[in-house]
């Protein structure tokens, strides 16, 4: 009888232990889905096609940043003024953010029309060269190239004694003015 009791208690303990392990494993999966990260990232990078806009960007994330892309006019018809080529845009973006270019494993460039009322920190030189930008004070349906550098691993600038996961960015973008070839801003969200 006594033996039976001991066995029962042992069984209960084993069951409790197994249940805790199972619960912990479930919890870990929810908190830290790192095994799926790579897959999700590559999926996202090939999506992001919004209505009328063909882009490799994640439209929802851009929206979070206050950035809206729209379908640009064909580049040769812009105001009948001279525009810079993709080659010039790539060169200028790389000169402004040389480390992004050097550390990247892949570079892509898109021609887009961008609106971003939240960024207004343009240099005097840029404002002097681009009348529309000078008048509006921000990128308002501005034809631009977006140069995207992929494949680096840069840490976020966390606070001291930070308890969370340090963010690691793998993709950086430079917005280049199509009319002047001047880099206007950079951004990163993945």
């Amino acid at each position: 009888m006594k033996k039976t009791k001991v066995i029962s208690v042992l069984c209960c303990l084993v069951m409790l232990f197994s249940f805790s392990i199972f619960a912990y494993a479930q919890d870990e999966t929810q908190i830290n889905p790192s095994s799926n990260i790579k897959e999700n990232l590559s999926d996202n990078q090939d999506e992001g096609v919004a209505e009328n806009v063909e882009t490799k960007q994640d439209i929802d994330e851009l929206e979070n940043m206050g950035i809206v892309l729209s379908k640009p006019e064909p580049i040769f018809s812009i105001q009948n003024v001279e525009t810079v080529s993709e080659k010039v845009a790539l060169k200028n973006a790389g000169e402004e953010f040389p480390q992004w270019e050097e550390d990247s494993k892949e570079v892509i460039i898109e021609y887009q029309q961008i609106t971003n009322p939240n960024f207004r920190d343009f240099s005097e030189e840029v404002l002097a060269k681009n009348e529309a930008l000078r008048k509006e004070g921000y990128m308002n349906n501005l034809p631009v190239y977006i140069v995207t550098y992929r494949g680096m691993s840069y840490e976020g600038n966390v606070p001291d004694s930070y308890k969370g996961e340090v963010p690691i960015h793998h993709e950086y973008n430079v917005v280049v003015d199509v009319l002047t070839g001047e880099p206007l801003m950079g951004f990163s969200y993945r």
């Binding site: 790192s34 940043m65 976020g156 969370g164 340090v166 963010p167 690691i168 960015h169």
Partner: peptide, 23 residues
Amino acid sequence: YEINYGYSSIGTSLGDYQVYSAK
């Protein structure tokens, strides 16, 4: 400028956004 909404996961920038001026 950088903002982090506090739910990054290992190896990613999830919820962390950076904006750079060209100057």
